[in-house]
Amino acid sequence: MIQFVMRRFLSLIAALAVSSVVIFLVIEVAPGDPASFMLGINAQPDTVAALRAELGLDQPKLQRYVSWVLGMLQGDFGISYTYRAPVGQMIADRLWVSLPLAIYALALSTLIAIPVGAYAAARRGRAGDMMVMGATQLGVAVPNFWFAMLLVLMFAIKLQWFSAGGFPGWEAGLGQGIMALSLPAIALALPQAAILARIMRSALLDVLGEDYMRTARAKGLSRPRAIWRHGMRNAMIPVLTILGLQFSFLLAGAIIIEQVFYLPGLGRLVFQAITQRDLIVVESVVMLLVFTVIMVNFLVDLAYLWVDPRLRGDG
């Protein structure tokens, strides 16, 4: 079991290392010099050179890569080309919007999808199942940012229950913050919940065909109790895999949906950085996103250990 964790941990480190190299290289091959871009076409060559030195752009690539990675390990993400502010601080501020949004949406979609999927599986082929399958078929096809626009139209503009966008900041109070993230979270969560509910349904249907479910019925467990006591946990194994994958979709979705609600999250930061060619910000945000995805998948692997004793190894 310790070996399993160690092995997964090592491959986590390896994945992070390779990812950082890939990200660094792709950004490196970008044409144009950030320093001259920042100073404009009329800048004096020696001013540009001074800025290049200040940004560390005159050093060899390998050295710049190493100092970038070492810096990140200490929480130092460098200085933004455009704002001349520490990138780490900029990211941290934005992360407090994007990450809660993704987690909020993940929680919502899980809470909706698992019971709905289980309900559909238990009533396979009956009216309830048909309705769930129809609704999820539609849900899967809806782009979340478009759904978000519809929600804004309905609940913010027509009914005026929510504000159409913006974020008051967590300083305004937890309730205000959650309120502001609710429409975006719902917009993100429902299409994902549709996918997850379908996965849950088919996973549970597979489990229902297993011999041990028949054993459970032969023991005298009623059908709902057999599903609850023996089916659900077994069905969670494939569902966990999808949950891990969904988090990366939700993170990406959060970045897009921030645009609909004018939320000051990582999305706005990175898209501005792209137009301003503030490459160090792009580089760091992308690294952070990749780190989060890899980390979540590592946690999913640990969750497998908790769910499935077969992975824990004998003895």
Binding site: V18, S19, L245, S248, L251, A252, V293, N297
Partner: peptide, 9 residues
Amino acid sequence: LIFAFPALV
């Protein structure tokens, strides 16, 4: 590794 890079990223 590629799975760690969503299409958006």
